[in-house]
Design a protein around this nucleic acid. Structure first.
Lengths: 339, 339
DNA sequence: TTGAAAGCGCTAACAA
DNA sequence: TTGTTAGCGCTTTCAA
């Protein structure tokens, strides 16, 4: 029943059908300006008739350039990384590259396995969200001729490009907004401070508070950044602040629920800002004002910086690109006085 | 500062270093049994010394086999598809294939573009969640020699393999559970019935009710399967059922919120079952009892069926594999009488 | 403007 | 057991 898959046409077949040489066909396809218009048309007809599609693998063998990019992520089902993947896929598609999905699944040996695979395939480069901060393996990849761009991690600029979101700015705009909306006694509900993102967001919060003489800032650290711990913290709170900045939306969702339990109204009594604009932010009882990160842009930019490095090796200079987050206004904060 | 990426070693370099011919090196790598142990060791030393990694692209050119699989999805950031991707990535990795991520983004012309790319690359096959039910484009892919496995969509078995979750069973176990927990007047809050999943889940619900003489079943259709519409429906409900089956968790989350607004207690007054076990299911006020689909298994199985077709072309017979969903018990239903 | 021919890195007959 | 050699499908000098 299956149609016998005809062996795909090769460039030779096209040449024969059009009555020209293979190099002419190649020229029609790659440097059309070099070839007579009438000949070109004959060739194109043959291409269409034979349903010819060139084989970039074979071409790459000759030219030395492959057309695949690796995307190495800890976990595709994590929405943050999925958004990076989407941006990267868009950019790769636009530029005619194919994207090889490498799901390292938090296993360093698997990440390493993918690195080897990328070297084998002579991938043109890779966008990677590395599992560990240890840069040795990454450096080895570079030495093997695979340039890489780090996403969501910093990298010494002389080592290569990287993209990330400015978490300090994120913390700052979150708390600035609370201040603008009239809160003066701010609590930061944070995750483990050894996590760079958490430390940065807190630092941003401090910056914002410092700019307002009368304001004060407190911090409480949750063991894990989950709804459950947010809830816990709300229950345990002794005296209520009038503004809370949670460094992720899960904490914020739990916190809101805990406050509701205690009869505390959001945003009337306490205003809350979350972080991440995760799905949950719009699903909780009081929808969350939160910080949105342009994550797709990260993925897109990473691929584009990689291609710049690859295609313009000489003029390329490494770049550390930091994206600005933005605030999404919803119901867990009051509207600005001016509005 | 950059180490000049030394041009990677070729099989010839290894041969020279080991003082043997290229074919011996090739044999050591591919059919070690054919070669003298001592020679093999010399070769392996040379491989290590030169840090040689074979180039599967070049090999594929010779053998005609590539080692990449396409994964064509409407949207990686959708958690359902992301879970498929994860399963597929795991399986591909285990079998030594690379997975090319094709994010069609709901754009048919882009999906088509990816199909062409897969043909160009001589991908060994593809796992695809097609945008439209129209099978013509898919058939063309097969004819071009790219076997495919459909995920989350049915396909006539003679056309190829497919994997999906049994939505009828899902609807049935959901409602069966409501009945078992003492509910007798069941409402299905459904999405558009022209969506196969919705129709199937409702059919499963009917099957369950039919088995219980005294039970009755009602249905209300939401315009969209969102939290907002779930909320709406809860508000508009005239007389309350004692069990509600929502065909997705967003609807269920909204419904619970709406019921809470009206002072209706879940699960004391009304029991609720959702569908999908999305993140939100454990985040709502009353955590949702819901139907969990083994989506990663779909992705994994799809890749494995594809490889079976590719590697055992002769003995392969197409298969339509249907996975059984399971119930996740949480707080929106009462515990079973027996417990 | 076109074509002939070499070769990218590898595998697989076939010969030695 | 090992080596020689002819391609896989394409690009790219170089010559015509």
């Amino acid at each position: 029943m299956d149609a016998i898959p005809a062996r795909p046409a090769r460039i030779q077949d096209v040449a024969a059908a059009a009555g020209v040489s293979v190099s002419t066909v190649s020229n029609v396809l790659n440097r059309p300006e070099r070839v007579n218009a009438r000949t070109a048309e004959r060739v194109r007809d043959a291409v269409a008739a034979l349903d010819y599609v060139p084989h970039p693998g074979a071409a790459g063998l000759r030219t030395g350039h492959s057309s695949s990019i690796g995307l190495v992520l800890p976990d595709v089902t994590n929405s943050f990384y999925a958004r990076i993947a989407r941006g990267a896929a868009d950019a790769a598609y636009d530029h005619g590259y194919s994207l090889v999905l490498c799901h390292s699944g938090d296993a360093p040996e698997r990440e390493q396995g993918y690195f080897t695979m990328l070297v084998e395939q002579r991938a043109v480069g890779a966008v990677v969200v590395p599992l560990s901060a240890d840069p040795t393996r990454l450096t080895r990849l570079r030495e093997r001729g695979i340039p890489l761009v780090l996403a969501d991690r910093a990298m010494p600029p002389q080592e290569g490009c990287s993209v990330s979101v400015d978490d300090i700015a994120g913390g700052r705009i979150a708390v600035q907004h609370l201040l603008d909306c009239g809160a003066g006694d701010i609590l930061v509900v944070n995750g483990d401070r050894s996590i760079r993102q958490c430390a940065d967001r807190h630092q941003g919060a401090r910056q914002a508070v410092r700019s307002r003489r009368t304001a004060r800032l407190d911090q409480v650290v949750a063991e894990e950044m989950t709804v459950a711990y947010g809830l816990e913290i709300a229950r345990a709170l002794d005296d209520l602040p009038d503004g809370v900045f949670c460094t992720n939306d899960f904490l914020a969702a739990g916190l809101c629920r805990g406050l509701a339990e205690r009869g505390v109204k959001v945003p009337e009594d306490v205003q809350v800002v979350g972080y991440g604009d995760l799905d949950i932010a719009s699903f909780v009882g009081t929808t969350l004002t939160t910080v949105r990160q342009p994550v797709e842009d990260l993925g897109r930019a990473a691929v584009e910086m990689l291609l710049d490095e690859v295609e313009a090796r000489a003029e390329h200079t490494h770049e550390t690109r930091v994206f600005a987050p933005g605030l999404v206004l919803r119901d867990s904060t009051r509207s600005l006085p001016g509005d």
